[in-house]
Structure formats: structure tokens, C-alpha cells
Design a binder for these strands. Structure first.
Length: 290
DNA sequence: TTGCAGGGGTCAA
DNA sequence: TTGACCCCTGCA
């Protein structure tokens, strides 16, 4: 329920569909309420968003706050019209793929939140990732809004300074050990994430791979969704399947697919991946027959 | 109700 | 290259 005192801000955002953007698996803290409003917790702030005919109204922030933090978050400096056009020019096979998810935008999310969320994502489906992330926030995050029961994403200190039994409350299974170890590393070296952002993308990838519980797929997700490297191309089971079907027509290794994508799509590889993933999830997956 | 397979992977042998 | 890993969901 909106309160009359809540600040709000309206803006036209083209090439944006919250359903596609928030539910395509790049973020885990947005949900649509029964009244149609979207609620998300971003940068320690609870946001509500309504959307109609390209007009977005954001409740919980004013214009200045939007410009300071959320212009970048929603990737509004990027021209998705021309990107979609370029992708289709690069390869006409992408026409139906891009058209299917044409309202998707690649968010620029908080690095720490993305890192931990995608460690949790391994061997898990989207609903369960959301469940574990929510539980982690509930148990270890700072409260944002008591009346809404909203919690910020927990900081490394909170996760490093707790017992494994406490961490296991979030039902993350074997991933809880990774959460604890990575949090500990960041507590001992608080500059880790800042330095990560300044490195060339290949070195940033290698640094991520040195953390426990982070392999090639998760490292590429972190680089892509935090905005560090928009040419990162995470290869998961869905991407492997859609790429094999569109391009290779045979069993192909993840590494070969990643190299092919970066060579073919260049700087747009990451955005191409997101369109491909959304297409694969809805056309090859369990939703395909719906 | 029960049992099994599989899930946006990673790690160690 | 392969199996184990936590736990949950979907399905028969």
C-alpha cells in the first residue's frame, strides 16, 4: 500500500518491460505484487515501480535520487534500439530471439550482491535462489522498513562473523561454506571489490575464479550483471542448449561456445547472452508449452 | 505418500 | 573426466 507522503518520480523508459527485465534471472530481489506493482530492494532502498506505456513511476525516491543511483542501475545511458538493430545485422538468426525479449534491460547491480547471489545460484533454479537470498537478507541484513519486513543485502562482516549453523538457516546447503569463506576473505581485504572494478576484465575474471565456489559461469555472471564487463558471456545449461541448436548442431564445450560468442558478438556478447537465455528459458524449458 | 531425477555449477580426485 | 555435494521441486 502506498503512503501519500512517499516521494515518487515518473520517467519514460523505452525498451523496458519490468516482467522481462526483473524475471529473466539477472536479479533476485524484485517481485510483482498482486496489485500489479513491482517491489524491489536495491542499494539498501525499498522501491515500488509501476509501468504503463513506457512510463515508469518509481515510489520511494525523488528525481535527484533517481539520477544519482538508478539512472545507471537501469542502464539508461545505453541505446537498446541500436544494440538490437546491430545484433540482428550481425546475425539474422537473432531476430526472433531479440524480438522475444525486446523489453529486457541489463541492470548494473551492486557487485557484492551479484557475487554472492550467483554463488548461491549454482545447481539451483530461480525460485530457490530467491528463497535463499531472501532468507540470507532476513537473517543477516539490516532492516530497511519494519512495516514492510524489508531487509538490506547482508554485508560481508555479518556473514563472516556468524557460525555455519546460523548460516545454514538460509538453507543454502553446501553453498553456505562458500558464502562464509568469501565473506571472510572480503573482511580481511576490504579493498577486494574496489580493486576488482579497476582491473582489466580478464584479470578481474581470474581474480573472481580464485575465490572458493566461483567457477567460469559464476565469474562471467558477476562481470556481466555488475556492469564490469558487458562482453562476458556466461554459458549455463540453457545457453549451451540454445547455442548448440542455433549454431553448432552438435554437443559443444562451454569454452568453445564462450569464445565463439565473444568473437561473433564482441562487446554486445553479454546483452546477446541475456536475450538468448530468456528465449531459451521460455521456448525450450518447462514454460515452453504454457 | 514415496521415490527419483534434476536444478543458471564447482571442486577434488 | 567424473561423481559428490545440500536441499528443494516436480512428477509419476
Amino acid at each position: 500500500m502506498l503512503t501519500i507522503n512517499e516521494p515518487f518520480f515518473s520517467i519514460q523508459i523505452r525498451n523496458f518491460d519490468p516482467f522481462q527485465t526483473f524475471l529473466c534471472g539477472q536479479c533476485f530481489r524484485w517481485a510483482q505484487n498482486q496489485d500489479g506493482l513491482w517491489t524491489g530492494i536495491v542499494f539498501g532502498r525499498r522501491l515500488k515501480l509501476s509501468w504503463e506505456n513506457d512510463i515508469c513511476t518509481l515510489y520511494g525516491i525523488d528525481q535527484q535520487q533517481f539520477i544519482d543511483q538508478f539512472y545507471d542501475y537501469f542502464d539508461l545511458q545505453t541505446d537498446y534500439f541500436s544494440i538490437k538493430k546491430k545484433l540482428v545485422q550481425m546475425d539474422e538468426k537473432l531476430e526472433k530471439v531479440v524480438a522475444f525479449g525486446s523489453g529486457m534491460r541489463l541492470l548494473r547491480q551492486d557487485l557484492w550482491e551479484v557475487l554472492l547471489s550467483f554463488v548461491i545460484s549454482q545447481n539451483n533454479g530461480i525460485p530457490r535462489i530467491k528463497q535463499i537470498v531472501d532468507s540470507l537478507c532476513l537473517h543477516f541484513g539490516k532492516p530497511i522498513s519494519v512495516e514492510d519486513d524489508a531487509y538490506d543485502f547482508p554485508q560481508p562482516e555479518a556473514l563472516a562473523n556468524t557460525t555455519m549453523d546460523n548460516l545454514n538457516l538460509c538453507r543454502g546447503g553446501y553453498r553456505c561454506r562458500y558464502i562464509s569463506e568469501i565473506s571472510g576473505i572480503l573482511v580481511h581485504k576490504p579493498s577486494f571489490l574496489t580493486e576488482l572494478k579497476t582491473l582489466p576484465s580478464q584479470q578481474a575474471r581470474e581474480l573472481l575464479l580464485s575465490l572458493p565456489g566461483i567457477g567460469p559461469k559464476v565469474a562471467d555472471c558477476v562481470l556481466l550483471y555488475s556492469g564490469i564487463d558487458r562482453s562476458a558471456f556466461p554459458v549455463d545449461r540453457w545457453i549451451k542448449r540454445v547455442m548448440e541448436e542455433l549454431y553448432f548442431h552438435r554437443e559443444t564445450s562451454e569454452d568453445t561456445i564462450r569464445k565463439f560468442a565473444r568473437d561473433t558478438f564482441g562487446d554486445l556478447a553479454g546483452i546477446a547472452q541475456q536475450y538468448l537465455f530468456y528465449y531459451a528459458l521460455n521456448n525450450f524449458g518447462k514454460h515452453a508449452d504454457a
